[in-house]
């Protein structure tokens, strides 16, 4: 009898142990991504080992996003919080404080060489400072993800963060990151080839806000925008007039709206200059599923195809 009980106990240990282990492995890493581009990176690296909650979703504008109590709840339950950094997420500090999260906050721009906001806006703002002293409004451009070379750094940082939080999955995270980086390299080749096909004299275009500084720096197109690096500040009439003047002097080849900003300003510039709006560029957010830019790679492909199409008229 005693033997039977012992055997039964042993059997239950044997049967329960694998279940217990499986259950521990099955619990996904809880990840919060600050915006949709990071969500896509995280899914590519984490696969089904992670569960992602995204704060600023598709077509959302992180510059002006107002965090909700539900975001704080998600953050309080997170194991890892992935953010862009470089002051891209103005809401971040509030959310960290409100959530009292114990998660690691990982700034994915770590290792990126930051570039400064465009000089013409610094000069304009200095000129506008009526109280006699100049202000630099956080003069680093936060949109580092618009360069695919930087996107690879984001991916590397994500893999490291996931490895630190879930050592057992590290091999999978690294393998996923490597495979995705390879795809990014191929996409980057396509972008470079597309730009090479645009005549140099036609490589200046207009968008709503200064979101493409890193793209410009890396790939050689020039982007002009009435709004600065954040959509929060309205452009001055002088900024808009200066842009219209540049278009009229044939310095810009095409004008584009962005998925995250109001189209009114760009439509005004287009109507005053006779330029046709060349399409929608995805700047600070992906599109919804089923849209033309629901992944980062699709976003980069869609943007360069739209730009090239509008400039070359094909």
């Amino acid at each position: 009898m005693l033997k039977t009980i012992r055997l039964a106990a042993l059997m239950s240990v044997i049967t329960l142990t694998p279940f217990g282990l499986a259950s521990a492995f099955a619990e996904p890493l809880k990840v919060v991504a600050s915006f949709s581009v990071i969500e896509d990176f995280a899914k590519n690296v984490g696969g089904d080992r992670i569960e992602v909650t995204t704060i600023v979703g598709p077509d959302g504008d992180a510059h002006v996003y107002e965090p909700k109590p539900a975001d704080a709840v998600a953050m309080s339950k997170a194991d890892v919080v992935l953010v862009n950094g470089l002051h891209f997420e103005g809401f971040l500090q509030r959310l960290v404080e409100a959530s009292a999260t114990k998660a690691t906050i990982v700034e994915l721009t770590k290792g990126v060489e930051p570039i400064k906001m465009k000089e013409e806006f610094e000069e304009a703002e200095e000129g506008e400072a009526a109280d006699g002293h100049a202000h630099h409004h956080g003069d680093t451009d936060p949109h580092a993800f618009q360069s695919i070379a930087n996107a690879k750094i984001y991916v590397k940082n994500i893999a490291e963060a996931f490895c630190a939080a879930d050592a057992a999955g590290c091999g999978a995270y690294k393998a996923n990151a490597d495979a995705y980086t390879q795809k990014l390299t191929e996409t980057e080749g396509e972008v470079k080839a597309a730009i090479a096909s645009i005549p140099e004299s036609k490589r200046t275009i207009i968008t709503s806000h200064d979101a493409f500084g890193y793209f410009e720096h890396e790939y050689g197109l020039t982007f002009l925008a009435p709004e600065g690096i954040s959509t929060e500040a309205e452009p001055s009439a002088a900024d808009v007039a200066a842009l219209i003047r540049q278009v009229r002097e044939d310095k810009a080849s095409a004008v584009f709206v962005e998925n995250i900003t109001n189209t009114r300003l760009i439509e005004q510039i287009a109507s005053e200059t006779g330029l046709k709006v060349g399409g929608t560029l995805y700047s600070d957010a992906l599109s919804f599923k089923g849209g033309p830019a629901s992944t980062y790679i699709d976003m980069m492909r869609n943007n360069i195809t739209t730009i090239k199409g509008a400039i070359l008229g094909s």
Binding site: E66, P67, K68, P69, A70, A72, R94, A98
Partner: peptide, 26 residues
């Protein structure tokens, strides 16, 4: 209206308040 977090706080009957997040399922 909430400041720093986007929500509303309202009365709901004499002895209760209600937290409102119009973007949330709840």
């Amino acid at each position: 209206g909430g400041r720093g977090l986007q929500y509303f706080l309202g009365n709901y009957g004499p002895s209760a308040v209600v937290l409102i997040d119009s973007t949330s399922k709840e």
